[in-house]
Structures are given as structure tokens and as C-alpha cells.
Design a binder for these strands. Structure first.
Lengths: 127, 127
DNA sequence: GGTTGACCTGGTGCGCGCTCCAGGTCCTAG
DNA sequence: CTAGGACCTGGAGCGCGCACCAGGTCAACC
């Protein structure tokens, strides 16, 4: 069940430097060690890393991830706060998607304009 | 028709430093000057800045914006290349939105789990 | 028991996209 | 004609999120 650093890198896609960095800044807590000091990641750690990647890839800043990690460390009494944090983030994602769609529409319009001009030029030159 | 730096900042939302930066790195070309050397932005400049903001806000890196600006400077013969660049960016946006939706689904699921636990705890304590 | 390679810690560096600063110029108002 | 503020240039600094490096330790094999 415990994974070496190398295995964890392969399984999570995070670099070893990133894993160490996350531990340093408090996103990973209580990572086991061998007698010699090497990290041992559990399945639970990997699950947590999946959560972190999900939050990261949807644009949550590290400061908020730290807040979420802190709540998670504080046990089951923080479910409400954790839910609220995620709900706010969910709204952030929704807004971001809406903005992307709006900007994308403008870009599509511009593409259409170029394509129109190109078609017109084609016709003119062949006339 | 020409706008002072201050007016341009207000109209575009870019900071003055950003406008100067964009000019330095080649995203803005041929900005007029007063006799004394102060910038004068035209309506055309503002329209171009709107395009830049649209590309920036949808995550296009500056290097590609520079490429697009370069094509725009090279005149009407680059319509096809410009269209292709925007089409590729459009696909990037599409992929980004799809990824956000996927991750968002996971987050919603997690929120649901927290809300479920909270409801369960509520019931247990009142029983 | 010696070599090799994965891993450790602490610290510095980097790429991006601005942002700020120093030191000087221009322009409007009184 | 002087004061104040907006603006100029060139260059340094910054915040984020890692990436890299030096110098040392650990683990497994020959």
C-alpha cells in the first residue's frame, strides 16, 4: 500500500519537486517516512493529491488550497466550511466558463470575418 | 478621436504600465505621439486592445499574441494564417472549457458528499 | 565494502506578465 | 515664471508556482 516517491510521481503526474514543495507549504501533511527518511505515500495521500490537482487545474490559488487543507486537517467538524469553500469555487468555475464562452464567441466571429474576406478575395481573383 | 494615456487606461482597463509594456514587446505598433512625446491612442488602437484583451483573457500566451500582431502588421495577405491561428486558439478554449466542466463535476460531487454527511449528522444528533 | 542511483534538505533561480522606481520632460494653471 | 501633475524612458523588482542545484544520505547489488 505505501508508494515510493518515484511511484507517486508516476501515479499522480506531479513532479517530485512539486510534491516536496506541497509538503513544505502545508498542502500535504503527515507524509510517512522510512527509517532512512524517504517519503512513503499512502493511497489516502494519492486521493488527496487528486483533489489538489483538481483544484489546481480549475484555477484555485495555492493560498485557498492551503485553507482547504487546513480545514481537512481539523477533522469532521469542518464539513460545512469545506462545502462552502468548494461551493464558492464552483461558482468561480462557472463564471470562468461563462467568460470563456463570451470571449470565444468574439473569436469565432473574427474567424468568420477572415473566412468571409478570403472567400470574397477568391471569387474576385477568379472573376 | 485621439485619446490621452489616461483616457486610454480608463477606456480599456489596461494599466498605463501594461500599455507601455505591450508597446515595448511589439503587441502595439505605431502608436502616435504628440510633439512632446506623449502617446496618442486612436479608435483603431482601442479596438486592437480589445482584441488583445480577449485573447489574453482566454489564456493565449504573449508569444502567440505577438505572432498574431506580427501577421496583422503584414497586411491583408495574412488573413488565412490569422484565421488558422484563431481557429487553433478556439479549439484550445473548447478543450479548456471541457476540462473545467469535468473537474467541476468532481467538485460538485464532493460538495454533495459533504452536504450529505452534514444532513446525516443533523438527523443523528436530533434523534 | 564499494559503486550507483534514488532520495534527502535548504536554498536559489526561473518564466510569465506585469508593476514599480528613479530621474528627467512636458503642459496647464495661477 | 513657477509650481504641480501627468507623462516619458530604461531598468529593476515582484508574485506565483514551481524547477534546479549543491552537498550529503540511503538502499540495493556485485
Amino acid at each position: 500500500m505505501p508508494y515510493s516517491p518515484r511511484e507517486t510521481v508516476q501515479k499522480t503526474g506531479f513532479s517530485l519537486d512539486t510534491l516536496r514543495y506541497y509538503e513544505r507549504i502545508g498542502l500535504l501533511d503527515g507524509i510517512d517516512r522510512t527509517a532512512g527518511g524517504q517519503r512513503l505515500f499512502t493511497d489516502e495521500d494519492l486521493a488527496w493529491l487528486d483533489v489538489l490537482r483538481c483544484l489546481r487545474d480549475t484555477g484555485m490559488p495555492i493560498a485557498r488550497m492551503r485553507r482547504y487543507a487546513e480545514l481537512a486537517r481539523d477533522g469532521d467538524g469542518t464539513f460545512a466550511e469545506r462545502a462552502e469553500l468548494l461551493e464558492e469555487h464552483d461558482r468561480d468555475i462557472e463564471r470562468k466558463i461563462a467568460e470563456l464562452r463570451e470571449e470565444q464567441a468574439k473569436i469565432k466571429e473574427k474567424i468568420g470575418w477572415y473566412r468571409g474576406e478570403l472567400a470574397r478575395m477568391q471569387q474576385t481573383s477568379s472573376a
